[in-house]
Design a protein around this nucleic acid. Structure first.
Lengths: 266, 266
DNA sequence: GAGTGGTCTAGACCACCCA
DNA sequence: GGGTGGTCTAGACCACTCC
């Protein structure tokens, strides 16, 4: 950072003069320029070398600024080519009123009905195993804490047009799902929920718990998330009356997805 | 990184030998040790200098590893003291079935009823202004795109026990809110929704759009979020019949909050 | 082969904390 | 004052892309 530039770039904040970090300043400046249309969508930004000399900083400092802009979704990068103003990404809207019986009996799982709503090619790889229920799983399923409980685990990687878009791990009490079609990779038409109803568990309602977090490195790699991109986590519990029959941990790229819920005033 | 350690630490992944980045390895190792209980909650981790010599890497590499663990919420840091295994943070569960008429007529806004459910002291600072509606605001409010629309903007910073926990900016058509109590800082008992109903807009339902993203630097500062912590964004639209009467952009720290939705099977 | 983004190193400085 | 986390610099190397 040029010494002269420092004083210019500092800010009054709540009446106090604050020295901004250099990379924050650089990110702000570039954000402004992108907003002003100096660089249009898809266009290449100045190279690292250019920005180093323009702002008078080291390579790593420029990198930090770009990491921030990328985390904000404003910029994407291709190693060996450059930084680019992000194209408006197609946003996938998942309406949460699609857990209807109609869909289930129509022969679709929830992911597949999302795919039908959009126009992308769905693909799912499934791995089924058994485990002792973790503490949080026990708690969501309402299983007693004082004894061990076996659960059927369905670990799924979901792809849209070949690209991994969602990870989902669901847990069903072995007492319910053991030895049934729910323990096979392909649960058949209508998906797991249809099978549960055939087993006599008529689904009455669902609870979804939504939070945001940073991805574990493995998740970031699978979901091809650039560094710093958050994920949305949805934990859905399916109830048959008072009984919780399934808990499903879903993870998806945060900014590409929007979950839409409708709430009645009553 | 010790040269010898490299080969040991590499991984088979989908049958292919992959060289892991050093900082990812270090983060994984420390994550394992925390999980195994080598360092208990609240305990201090080895210092930067210790970790540098233990793993044979530079200071910045250790820093990157700790940044990741902190983004995951496993570790917190105090400059001048050290890195600490994060205490189990109290998680705030926001049930989304609290938009009931009962709450409104009982004299509480939504934030205040959340506070009553928990046991924290709420405080809100409000700034009211007028603006031309942005494109996205127009779209949410269902206002025609071909002409200008003025909106009343209520910009709020919400604190729980003095700590900033949520930012909320809501937009109401000036046509509805202009000159009413909705344009004052204090909207009075029951909050904005109660005033809207008094104005003859009986609220029928709400739509919430949930997504996760990286905070802008200003948000990170206000919410005291460490670098890399994602935020949850909820955009709520209030409807009176077919007419959208308010859109509210809410931002909150991602991992501390869980939004709970209930969905009926129908 | 030249240029690019990405990462690691080594060394420096700062603000902060604690004895 | 010595240790700590956090940041910036300068220089190096790698894998990649494009010519």
């Amino acid at each position: 950072m040029l010494v002269g530039a420092w004083t210019c770039l500092d800010r009054f904040y709540d009446g106090v003069m604050v020295q901004m970090k250099p990379w924050v300043e650089i990110a702000e400046e570039l954000r402004r320029e992108i907003g002003r249309g100096v660089y249009g969508p898809g266009e290449r930004l100045p190279s690292g070398t250019d920005l180093m000399s323009r702002f008078g900083v080291a390579r790593q400092t420029v990198q930090n600024a770009m990491d921030q802009l990328r985390a904000e979704g404003l910029v994407s990068s291709v190693a060996g080519r450059g930084w680019f103003v992000a194209e408006r990404k197609p946003i996938v809207r998942l309406a949460r009123n699609r857990l209807s019986k109609a869909e289930r009996t129509e022969g679709r799982g929830t992911f597949l009905s999302d795919a039908a709503a959009g126009k992308w090619q769905p693909a799912v790889t499934v791995e089924v195993r058994r485990e002792q229920a973790r503490e949080d799983v026990r708690s969501y399923l309402g299983l007693a804490a004082d004894q061990d409980h076996e659960v059927v685990v369905r670990d799924r990687v979901m792809r849209a047009d070949g690209e991994v878009v969602q990870l989902a791990v669901s847990y069903l009490p072995a007492e319910i799902a053991g030895g049934t079609r729910l323990e096979e990779a392909d649960t058949g038409p209508g998906g797991a929920y249809a099978r549960l109803e055939e087993l006599g568990f008529e689904l009455t309602h669902f609870t979804e718990v939504v939070s945001a977090r940073s991805p574990r490195p493995r998740e970031a790699e699978l979901l091809r998330l650039p560094l710093g991109f958050p994920v949305l986590q949805v934990i859905r519990v399916a109830f048959a009356g008072d009984r919780a029959v399934e808990v499903n941990y879903m993870t998806m790229g945060g900014e590409r997805y929007q979950l839409v819920y409708q709430i009645d005033a009553g």
